[in-house]
Write a protein that binds this DNA or RNA. Structure first.
Lengths: 141, 141
DNA sequence: CGTATCTGTAACAAGTACAGTTACTGCGTG
DNA sequence: CACGCAGTAACTGTACTTGTTACAGATACG
């Protein structure tokens, strides 16, 4: 199962909690506990979406380029995790009355289920996540 | 991506549209356009859930054992497709203020998103699917 | 009673997706 | 120019899913 959404939110939360600071992929990778290339791959997607700015070369790194309260988790999910959640079998028998229509019927079911999930993600912004992190941190002491 | 849910609904729709008839895995497989063993594997899960009855041996096969209007797509999904939709990276750095809390914060986000999806699937029953199939069939002529 | 037919299930192969890793190019600062 | 960083291609290992073969057990039928 893909962890891209999870890691992407982690990365964005890091960038949001260190605004206008350049973080290197190596530094981010040590927080996520993964390889720096994995981080750069994901940040490539976020950069193309316009949410992150990059500076190459010495003293380079990544920084957030949007207001965290204007970026929903739905957008993040859709940027890094493409396609459908629920697979539909491709080629049922068209000569069977069920087989010939099940694809279309399931398509609408799956679409509405996926939209419900995305709508729920759309209720939360990156700022909400950052805020929740600080609350949880305080609780720990 | 797993197509088990999709195929399971297809199979259940077949059984529901031929009530009190025994359908063989071979016959079902030809409608789904897959191998009979794949069908039997899925039907094993549905049998253990109590929704399908089996008769082995000659003249054997599968038949529905529940009222289609009492079986929601949510139940079917959960029977054949276990685990979470969205993965969470397992071991972020506990010494990082973000890394130490991101798992819990993401957990609640992912749980609510998944619940929203399941709730949407819970709005539809197998009977709804069968009804939609017959509507689509009529539209085709 | 034997045979044909069907389920149940194990075992294996093939395809696919993802994370991790190495290696390299190119950019930009000091 | 050298160092440190992003960007990206390529390869590996692992895990999951589907498809397939094989076979044991069950059951109706002649």
């Amino acid at each position: 199962m893909s962890q891209r959404f999870s890691v992407a939110v982690h990365i964005l939360a890091l960038l949001a909690s260190e605004p206008s600071k350049l973080l290197t992929s190596e530094w981010i990778a040590s927080s996520v506990n993964t390889n720096a290339v994995v981080v750069r791959r994901l940040l490539g997607l976020l950069r193309r979406a316009g949410w992150v700015k990059t500076r190459a070369g010495r003293e380079g790194g990544f920084e957030l380029a949007v207001d965290p309260s204007a970026l929903t988790l739905r957008e993040v999910y859709q940027a890094v995790e493409e396609g459908r959640i629920i697979g539909i079998h491709a080629a049922p028998n068209p000569r069977c009355p069920v087989g010939s229509c099940i694809g279309a019927a399931l398509g609408s079911v799956v679409a509405s289920a996926q939209e419900a999930m995305l709508a729920e993600l759309g209720k939360r912004s990156l700022a909400d996540v950052v805020k929740e992190l600080s609350v949880r941190r305080e609780r720990k002491g």
